[in-house]
């Protein structure tokens, strides 16, 4: 178990290093942020040059990269170009909002996706299955901005039941939460449904399920005890990664609903070529994904004795 953890930690570090290189290069491919100053009347060549130097963008890429990584190692993501404050405080200011939204969206995706997926697999090729498959297809293929706009149009504008812009003060503001979490959960419930269904189908076709039925076990025992537990490993992985994605990169939904979360922070950063902000958010998302995968890997051990004992 110790060597397993050490190995996993090492590979996690390598993953994060590669991620930092990619995001470092990608943001710089978008152009020099100082050039955005040309939009202001009277901006001169030397103003641009001064601003570039002030942000440290006149140094060579290797130099910039080394200081970027060195700062990350000390949990310092630098100063945001546009806000002038530290990226870390910006990120952690927005994090509770994103966590709130992601939590409800995640719950919606699980509550819809997993039971429907199980039903589709158990009653394969039936009416249930058609409903499930249609739902999964819609969830995966209808873009979330479209769903978001439809929700706004129906519940916000036509029926005027729910507010759809921003977030009110107070942590338990459920009214502003409903539409964005539906829009965000929608897409992920489709993915959960499809994976649960295919995973269940594979297990239900296995020999040991056949033997369970030949043993005369009640169908609920066959499904809940044997089939569900066996089909849960891939579902667990997807669920964990989904959660991180919902927290960090729910860009479209947060923009449509003006939700003050991390996704919108990232969007602001991208639009304004705010390198430290974009880099910071992406690295934080990477850390979370790598960390979650690590936790999930440890959880597998509890679910599957084969994994537990080979470590």
């Amino acid at each position: 178990m110790k060597t397993f953890i050490a190995k996993r930690l090492l590979s996690s570090l390598v993953t994060l290093l590669v991620l930092s290189m990619i995001i470092f290069a990608l943001v710089r491919a978008s152009g020099n942020p100082a050039e955005l100053l040309y939009e202001y009347p009277g901006a001169r060549e030397e103003d641009i040059a001064r601003q570039t130097a002030a942000w440290g963008l006149d140094k060579s890429w290797p130099e910039q990269y080394v200081s970027f990584v060195w700062n990350i190692a000390r949990f310092d993501y630098g100063q945001s170009f546009q806000y002038g404050t530290s990226v870390r405080s910006l990120y952690f200011d927005r994090l509770p909002n994103s966590l709130l939204l992601a939590f409800w969206a995640f719950l919606i995706s699980m509550v819809i996706g997993i039971p429907l997926g199980i039903m589709s697999a158990v009653k394969v090729d039936s009416w249930w299955d058609s409903v499930g498959k249609t739902f999964a297809l819609l969830g995966l293929s209808v873009p979330s901005f479209f769903v978001a706009l439809l929700l706004v149009l129906l519940f916000g504008v036509k029926l005027e039941w729910l507010p759809f812009l921003g977030k009110a003060e107070g942590f338990f503001d459920w009214q502003h939460l409903i539409l964005p979490s539906l829009a965000l959960g929608w897409f992920f419930s489709g993915a959960m449904l499809r994976l649960t269904r295919s995973s269940m189908l594979e297990v239900l076709g296995s020999e040991y399920i056949k033997l369970c039925r030949l043993k005369g076990l009640p169908e609920t025992v066959v499904i809940v005890k044997h089939a569900l537990k066996n089909s849960f490993i891939p579902v667990l992985t997807l669920a964990a990664v989904n959660l991180v994605v919902m927290i960090n990169v729910a860009v479209v939904v947060e923009v449509v609903f003006s939700w003050p979360g991390i996704g919108r922070l990232l969007y602001d950063g991208l639009i304004n070529r705010d390198f430290p902000l974009v880099q910071g958010v992406v690295v934080m998302a990477g850390v979370m994904i790598v960390g979650t995968n690590f936790v999930v890997d440890v959880l597998y051990g509890y679910l599957d004795p084969r994994i537990r004992l080979t470590r």
Binding site: E207, Y208, D304, P305
Partner: peptide
Amino acid sequence: DPMASLDPL
């Protein structure tokens, strides 16, 4: 198939 007849979990 004895390898597949038992539930691994």
